[in-house]
């Protein structure tokens, strides 16, 4: 019995590490017409991975549906952009990264997390 529990525990730990840190990331969504609409609800940005070309500005349209205070600001790493997101109101942000790479966009507390894949 205890062997089984220990095996289960270790497997669970491995699963946590794999799923949250190592597992293949979801495919990044590309912006159509230079606009990508991102829903802010239930603790996640949807989509949470967005592909944009380097050196070209893309409009990120955030629509916050989550009334919790956590969701009220979105900020972009390396751009110094941070904006308040009023509830149920579209907020357009023009995002442009010149260097290819992966950049995070998060809420103030880093709980809502998304990635911009620049190529």
């Amino acid at each position: 019995m205890s062997g089984l529990v220990n095996m289960g525990g270790l497997a669970l730990m491995a699963a946590v590490i794999w799923w949250f840190w190592l597992a293949g990331k979801r495919k990044a969504v590309k912006a159509s017409d230079g606009i990508i609409e991102i829903q802010v609800a239930n603790g996640v940005y949807t989509p949470d991975r967005v592909a944009i070309p380097a050196g070209k500005a893309v409009t990120f349209r955030f629509i916050r549906e989550d009334p919790t205070a956590c969701a009220e600001v979105v900020k972009f790493d390396g751009l110094g952009i941070s904006r308040e997101l009023p509830l149920n109101k579209a907020v357009d942000l023009s995002i442009r990264y010149d260097e290819p790479g992966e950049y995070a966009f998060t809420c103030q507390m880093g709980m809502y997390r998304g990635q911009v894949v620049v190529s």
């Binding site: 799923w19 949250f20 597992a23 990331k25 979801r26 609800a41 239930n42 603790g43 996640v44 949807t46 949470d48 919790t68 956590c70 709980m111 809502y112 997390r113």
Partner: peptide, 19 residues
């Protein structure tokens, strides 16, 4: 409910939050 929905949504996105 909000914690469970949030946790599930985050889980699907390979992410984990307060929820």
């Amino acid at each position: 409910r909000q914690f469970f929905i949030g946790a599930w949504q985050a889980f699907k996105a390979h992410s984990a939050t307060m929820d």
